[in-house]
Structures are given as structure tokens and as C-alpha cells.
Amino acid sequence: MNPNTFSPEEWQAIWLTLKVAILAVLGSVPFAIGAAWLLSYARFPGKIFIEALISLPLVLPPVVTGYALLVLLGRHGLIGRFLDRDLGIVLAFRWTGAAVAAAVMGFPFMVRGIRLSFDAIERDLEGAAASLGAPGWLVFATISLPLAIPGLLSGAVLAFGRSLGEFGATITFVSSIPGETRTISSTIYGLLQTPEGDSAVLRLCVVSLVLSFGSLIVSELMIRAGRRRLER
């Protein structure tokens, strides 16, 4: 086999990784907006615990996060059993479960991006909109949220990048099933266990590098575009 071309299994892993990352990011956007709103605008007792909980995946060993997901969302898990029984949704050992794991791992980045944007908005700007007659939800929808779009996008791109590289939580929660949950990372890990996998490992490492580097560049470009947009 030509060492410079991807095998069908490698293509499958690349495609699956992208699919998982895209679903993870799109699916967590509304939750991330809600969490960022809570952290930036709401005042309530115990807020520090919510902040810590959202950031927890950054510092917790990914394998622990994966195990927590298994306990919560596994077929017999605390929440998972009801998802299975009442809604027919199974996440463990499915690609959708890989997306959930990736979403949890990328969530802190997305919340942070949106929250920094919210924090940067002058409160008097929202006060002006309220004085002009906009109810709270309309101020949020027409002023706060549009001004946070650059932060949302850059956070989403970082979360996307994080999702691409997710390994520990994913392999713990959904294992590494070819065609279902075997992403680029778990393919590389598998290939490293075999003596003849070197050229495939190299190819997939290059793909990872390009995707990750690319998403950092895109994120940086969005932060710059956002700065220009917010200039007054």
C-alpha cells in the first residue's frame, strides 16, 4: 500500500472525528450561552460552585470525566436508564456518546469565550437599550448576544479543537469501536500497540496537527474581527 494515502479505516476515523466534534460544538452552543449568561449577569449564592463545575473538565483527569459520564449516562446510569427506557436514547458506546464526551470537555472553552464577551459589554449600553423601551429578553437578543458572537465563535472553535483531540473521556465512556467510536486519537493509540502502524500513525498525526493548528488560527482571526467590530 502506498504510504502516502489514507486507508478506508483512516478515512473513517477522520470523518468520524469531524462528525463528533461538529455535533459536540453545535449541541453545546445553547447550553454554553445559558451558562455564560448565568456567570456574567446573574447573582446568586453558590455561583462559585457553578463556575468551578463548568471548569472542572479542564483539570479533572479525562478518564475520571469519562467514568462520570458512564455512571450518569451509561445504559444503566442514573440518567442514562431513563433516556434509554423513556426516550430510546442510548449514548454509551455510540458515536453520539463520543460527541457528549467531546462536548463536556470543550464546554469550559466555549463558556469562557462567550462570558468574556458578555463581561466586556458596557452595562450602560444595555441600560440604553432598556431605557429606549426594550424588555430584558430583547436587550439580550438584540444587544448582548450579537456583541458576544465573536467570543462565541472563538470559544466554539477552541471547543472544536479540544473535541478533535479528546481521548481519555471518550475511550472510557464509549470505548474504541471501529466505525462507531474510533476517532483519530483512539486510532493512533491502537496503531501504536501494533509493530507495523508507523506510517499510518504519522499520517494521522499530521491530520491532527493541521486540524488543531487550523482551529487555533481561525479562533485568533475571530477574536481580531470581534475587536474591530466592538470598536466605537
Binding site: E122, D124, L125, S131, I143, L147, R229, L230, R232
Partner: peptide, 11 residues
Amino acid sequence: LVFQDGLLFPH
């Protein structure tokens, strides 16, 4: 309301 620096909606 008119503020010192206008505070027009930048977008």
C-alpha cells in the same frame, strides 16, 4: 438617555 461617549449600539 445620552451618555458622555454616546454609547451607540456598535453593531
